[in-house]
Amino acid sequence: MTNRGNRRVLVIDDEVFVRDLLIDFFEKLDFEPVTAADGNAGVDAFRQGTFSAVLVDLKMPGKSGIETLSDIRAIDTKTPVIIMTGYPTIDTSIEALRLGAYDYIIKPFKLQDLRDIVDRAIREQELHAEIDTLRDRITNIESQLREHRAQTAGRPRVPESS
């Protein structure tokens, strides 16, 4: 089970109907949705906040979904970004793959499917964060050990009492 409390999701879509639908959907799931109506506003919002996941529409006037994904990836490589589109193409799905999108979903989609994808994305992200923390801890322990060895290297050994 994913604990969704206080988690923020960024929705970038030029269609007000989709934004409203997703605001309602995420609020019911106890997320805090933030929306942007175009790619530039979406990237600005992303830069200013911390999000558990980002949903980006592919076809928007101005900055496209792929360009938006690329800008987001330049800021942060870990936050899961889900591309949504009513106009799937081979080229954009390959571009999304290359830019490390978490998923690429075709509109209209079932809200239950979106919920599953977002939950899975958050779980994976948390696992990765945990692995990174453990890796850092190991690095710290190793460096402390090296330091300790260096400090005790020249010292004579205390004879063991019989």
């Binding site: 193409t89 290359r98 999108a101």
Partner: peptide, 18 residues
């Protein structure tokens, strides 16, 4: 034989490139 479906499946399996 490229397709949107196989590219999406590849993306979901975290393939490096297609």
């Amino acid at each position: 034989y490229p397709s949107v479906e196989s590219a999406i499946e590849a993306l979901r399996r975290k393939v490096d490139d297609y």
